Simulated scan of single mutants.
Amino acid sequence: MGTSDPTTITLLGENLAEDLMGEVSFGELAFRLITRRRPEPGQLKVFEAVLVALADHGFTPTAIASRLTLHSAPESVQGAMAAGLLGGGSRFLGVTEDTATFLAAVLAESAEPADERGWDELARTAVRRRREAGELVPGLGHPVHEQQDPRTPVLIRLARESGTYGSHLALFEAIGRVAPGALGRRLPLNGAGVCGAALADLGLPAEILRGCALLARAAGLLGHIAEEMRQPIAGEVYRAVDRNAEYVDPDA
């Protein structure tokens, strides 16, 4: 993928200093590193929109972990970054990969529907099977955005406008339409899920998509770390938890 000698650095077959620096965005380089192909303009637009969508979501557990780690080890920025990234799992960030994997499995078992009614029926069957298996449908619901995740319609619109809207997003939208009837309650399509569907439509393999989410969140975590250095809050978080925790005698 890359190599170097005393005078040059070569990456993806190109001279890093002369051909890439100042010529391509970081998003384009990341896309090329992952896929080994140049993105079309529409693909790059959606890919970079996903990175922006997943960069930060406030005082989440990943951000808290980074800030507390920096408070404990202020000399270790790398430790603070790593602490936040390690929290990318099934509840935060990992949903991007989980949704893409789920959608790809459904699509692999069925022919692509010809119309919206067909997509809805396919989605209804997929949701029912998940319920029967006692599993949640990835990409549904959000702890803050209970009515609509503001990222979802924007990413869907960008995908349509850029010509990258495909079967994964079509199925994901259908799941959003049928979920209230199938589940008996309304759960919005969340941003992490729509990011997974959009990336899958770009042709990125599902098993790498958690890495894409972590790539995006790394920028947000670095921002939290920089803010923590300027305006520390982790000490207050630590003291608030420590002073308000209720001790329970294990032998009582």
Rank of each mutant, 00 (worst) to 15 (best):
V237C: 12
R185S: 14
V77L: 10
G193F: 03
L199K: 02
R239D: 11
R210P: 01
L171S: 06
A133I: 10
G196Y: 08
E228D: 09
G27I: 02
D149N: 01
T101F: 03
L93S: 07
R128N: 03
I225P: 07
S110Y: 02
A133D: 12
L44V: 02
L85M: 10
E161F: 09
E18Q: 07
V50C: 13
A30N: 03
S162R: 10
I9V: 14
R117K: 15
E146G: 05
V106T: 07
H168W: 06
G223S: 14
G13V: 13
L215W: 06
T152I: 01
T7M: 14
P150H: 01
W119H: 14
R186E: 14
P232T: 06
R36S: 15
G166A: 11
L68F: 11
I34S: 03
P138R: 00
I9D: 14
F92E: 10
F92S: 11
S76L: 08
R217A: 05
D201W: 00
T96W: 06
R32K: 11
I9E: 14
L11K: 13
Q43H: 02
Q148R: 08
L155N: 09
L183M: 11
V95E: 01
E173Q: 12
E236I: 04
L20R: 10
A133S: 13
F26Q: 12
E161A: 12
G27N: 09
L29K: 12
A192Q: 11
A245F: 13
P153V: 06
G139C: 00
R186L: 11
R239N: 11
F31R: 04
G134W: 12
G87S: 07
A197K: 00
G220S: 02
R185H: 11
L16W: 13
V144W: 07
L222T: 07
G22R: 12
H168C: 10
G211S: 08
R239E: 13
T96F: 06
G89I: 00
T60R: 04
D56M: 01
P61R: 12
T69D: 06
S66L: 04
R217P: 03
T164Y: 05
G193C: 01
A159F: 06
A49T: 05
G163W: 00
G184E: 11
P188F: 09
R230N: 13
D149K: 00
A104D: 15
D19K: 10
T69P: 01
L68A: 14
E18H: 05
A108L: 06
R91I: 08
D98S: 10
A182I: 00
G84Y: 08
S167A: 14
G220P: 02
L33H: 09
E236S: 07
E132H: 09
V137F: 05
C212T: 09
E109R: 04
G193K: 02
Q43C: 01
L202T: 04
Y247M: 15
A65V: 07
